[in-house]
């Protein structure tokens, strides 16, 4: 598996059958559409470094209400297009006059995208399990292209984050992340997610973050004795371990 940084218009393959997402075909050759990381397994795909969230059906998103009409809540879902939640998609029957009491302007909710039509009218639903109004915790914004990285391989990163931070986490596809836990736990987790966002293209990140979350915890206890050597020695250890783990992981991938 080869990965490399590509720019828009870079030729990726001479075989047009290899064209995957984030590419286009011109005169039988495959070119990149984005500035991002190219991946050629059997098809060439390009994952952009940045970009806005474009709604797609069945995605889970976190939105906040910007307007309430007689039959719809209009949600900002962090994309160029606003989402509409019709009263009939709310888990219980609500009278038009009571809509603002249920979810008022500025309130947040976990929603699922029911449908997106060709003119990008986004219909939302709250009738699925797990979809609800968010009354506590906090929401942080990340780039939508980094969402897969924060979730990790088969959810490895997010389950680690949950375990190490003692926080409840929900990651929306639109790059909004909801956290709930103790204030200090949430602060640490926010920092951890910032690191993931900035270092998403480096290796062994899961271990690095795990160490980050754990060592800061133990730092509080051992800080007075030897703060500097403690962190640095641990860092060496994790980087080495990461590399080994990565080798193992990539072997598994090939099999």
């Amino acid at each position: 598996m080869k990965r490399k940084i590509v720019y828009p218009g870079q030729m990726l393959s001479e075989n047009e059958k290899q064209a995957g997402t984030g590419t286009y075909v011109h005169e039988g050759k495959v070119y990149s559409l984005f500035y991002g990381v190219a991946n050629d397994k059997n098809r060439v795909t390009v994952v952009p470094f940045s970009g806005k969230y474009i709604p797609s059906p069945r995605d889970y998103v976190i939105g906040y209400v910007i307007e309430v009409t007689s039959s719809n809540w209009i949600f900002d879902i962090g994309s160029p297009y606003d989402g509409l939640l019709h009263v009939s998609e709310y888990p219980k029957r609500v009278d038009s006059s009571m809509m603002r009491k249920e979810i008022g302007i500025g309130d947040c909710a976990i929603l699922r995208i029911k449908d997106v039509n060709t003119s990008m009218k986004v219909e939302l639903s709250m009738k699925d399990r797990g979809l609800r109004r968010l009354d506590e915790g906090r929401i942080i914004d990340v780039s939508t292209t980094k969402v897969p990285r924060i979730i990790g391989h088969n959810g490895s990163m997010v389950s680690m984050l949950k375990k190490e931070s003692n926080c409840d986490i929900f990651i929306g596809q639109n790059g909004r992340i909801w956290l709930k836990g103790k204030d200090e736990d949430m602060n640490r987790l926010t920092q951890a997610i910032e690191i993931i966002e900035n270092k998403s293209h480096t290796s062994g990140l899961t271990n690095h973050i795990s160490a980050f979350l754990r060592y800061e915890e133990s730092d509080e206890i051992e800080e007075k004795e030897k703060p500097v050597p403690f962190t640095s020695s641990k860092k060496d250890y994790t980087e080495d371990a990461c590399r080994k783990v990565d080798v193992l992981l990539s072997d598994e991938d090939e099999n």
Partner: peptide, 12 residues
């Protein structure tokens, strides 16, 4: 970069 990318970011 190519080497250091971890397998976790596989788009598939």
């Amino acid at each position: 970069e190519a080497e250091e990318e971890s397998p976790e970011e596989v788009p598939e």
